[in-house]
Design a protein around this nucleic acid. Structure first.
Lengths: 192, 192
DNA sequence: GATGTCATGTAATAAGTTACATGATTTG
DNA sequence: CAAATCATGTAACTTATTACATGACATC
């Protein structure tokens, strides 16, 4: 049931479903995502429940936009969620499930390729976040202490992404090194 | 569709649904979880698809056990999945969604309490993983280089958990410090 | 004139959670 | 004798993905 609340939070200013999807692709990409086909019906249900209301507006280009806004009940629900303490779901990292069982292939080259691909993906995301932070620091004097309270919170979530992705990259490197050491030491597989 | 493959991997040795659930609570808790009510029908579907077969065995205590085993088709499917490259799903971290919008409460005490609770939860999980690694290192001479190839992979996933949880704890500390600095510098809210 | 972005949605399917139902054996 | 563990499952519901459908306007 978190998407409801995430959307509720995003509606600090009135917005259409399409806008919210964009936000999942930009800011917020490092902690949540949803398809438009999930966002539209969810907004509809939230309106029925009285957390939102909507009006239809013409668009500059393309079809009319349905713009949603939080009601007072929505504001109360958001505050309740924020004060309810952290929502900690169990992790679901399929790639670690893969790695866990990859010994069965008896092919350390496969493991190496896997880790290199992982590293590439993590490093790409990490450096993307780093650029965001860098741009932010350029446009704000006395960064990060000079941020508004609102931006302080947004920046903190970005830091979480940076820290974790940095740790994942470092872990890939550590694991690749250990893999290499194993191969050098115990003479694996490929002797003729 | 990953649960199928995760279960397929876990069935290195024949096991019942109940056993697999236990594994999600112990080893593997840091990267996946599933309820029994999801595991049982999933195993059933996998048997229909021909990836598993099963036999019924009496239990030492309690009702009969339905023990599943991978078929050859199952082994092939597992190998295919492992070689298909890392499955990288978008993250879904509700607590970061909460923090992102917590500025709206205009209550830095609430943010502080939130971060402290997060830190507690992360540190608890981190130190639990650390104990697992420590026990492992005690029982294995020349740890970690002396591990079998199988255990090397399992250990690598454990290291991933340790690294990431360490990063999350450090992030909480960094954020709490910045929060403190903000309060000392800009004189927030509670002046009389 | 093809491709991309803007914009909304529905339908079908898959995945995951919560609640319900049962009953034996073990441990305190 | 109460509570926990062993062990299997079904049913109802919620959440998320994939596929389908539409159509205007903008850019190359």
């Amino acid at each position: 049931m978190s998407l409801d609340h995430i959307l509720l939070g995003m509606l600090r200013e009135p917005a259409a479903g399409y806008d919210l999807k964009k936000e999942f692709e930009g800011t917020g990409a490092h902690f949540w995502s949803a398809h438009l086909s999930q966002i539209y019906p969810t907004l509809g249900r939230m309106e029925e429940r009285g957390w939102l209301d909507s009006r239809t507006e013409p668009s500059d280009r393309g079809p009319d936009r349905r713009v949603y806004r939080r009601t007072e009940a929505g504001e109360r629900e958001l505050a309740r969620w924020l004060r309810a303490g952290p929502e900690l779901d169990p992790p679901r990292l399929a790639y670690l499930g893969q790695l866990f069982h990859m010994g069965e292939l008896e092919d350390l080259d496969a493991t190496e390729a896997f880790l290199r691909e992982l590293r590439g993906a993590f490093e790409a995301r990490r450096s993307a976040l780093e650029s965001v932070e860098w741009a932010w620091s350029e446009s704000c004097p006395d960064f990060p202490d000079g941020l508004s309270d609102e931006d302080f919170h947004a920046h903190a979530t970005l830091r979480a992404g940076l820290r974790v992705l940095g740790a994942r990259v470092a872990w890939c490197d550590e694991t690749l090194e250990r893999l290499d050491r194993r191969r050098r030491t115990h003479d694996h597989g490929d002797e003729r």
